[in-house]
Amino acid sequence: MANPVFYIGADQAEAAEQLKALETTLPAARTKHEGEAKLLKEREKAFTEYRKVLARTVSERLRQPTRYEAPQFVADVDKLGTLAGGKLSDADLDAAAATCARSEPPAKIKQ
């Protein structure tokens, strides 16, 4: 059996020491990464629930005949974001809610 022979220059020795120093920080970095990944997952779950609640609130306020769910809510928010200001005024929102709350259809327009 032959014994391996390595020649290490000054730059390789320095790199080996840097590697050893970094290897000691690896467990702490992994633990930190796992904690941050868990926190991200919890925040994503909370945000998903928040969107569901907002979609339900919008649906109830506007008396939607069909289910209004979070994906449609997100798409609508994206569309509103392209409008000036990206937000309905309170008067416009109240007018939309009043229109949705009407039990009879609007009067026909004569042409």
Rank of each mutant, 00 (worst) to 15 (best):
R102F: 01
L19V: 00
L88H: 14
A15G: 11
A10F: 01
F47T: 07
A75F: 01
P27G: 06
Q64M: 11
G81Q: 11
A10C: 06
A70H: 02
E49L: 03
L80Q: 13
A95K: 07
K108G: 08
L19C: 10
T99E: 09
A16R: 15
D90C: 08
Q64C: 13
A107C: 05
A98V: 00
E104Y: 01
D94W: 00
K38M: 10
A70S: 13
P106V: 00
D78S: 09
A95N: 15
T24H: 11
V5D: 14
A98G: 06
A70D: 07
V74K: 10
A96E: 15
G85S: 05
T57V: 10
I8L: 13
T99Y: 02
A107M: 06
G85C: 04
E36W: 02
D92F: 00
G35E: 08
P105S: 07
Y68K: 06
A84K: 09
L19A: 14
A46Q: 08
Y50G: 04
A95D: 15
K45N: 08
G86A: 12
R63P: 06
A107R: 03
I8D: 12
A16P: 12
V74Y: 04
K110C: 09
A84E: 14
N3A: 11
Y7Q: 08
T48V: 02
S59P: 09
A13V: 02
E14R: 08
E49W: 00
S103M: 09
L93I: 05
T25S: 15
G81Y: 04
A13G: 07
K79P: 10
A96M: 15
F6C: 05
T66L: 11
F73I: 15
A28H: 10
R63S: 11
D11N: 08
A29R: 13
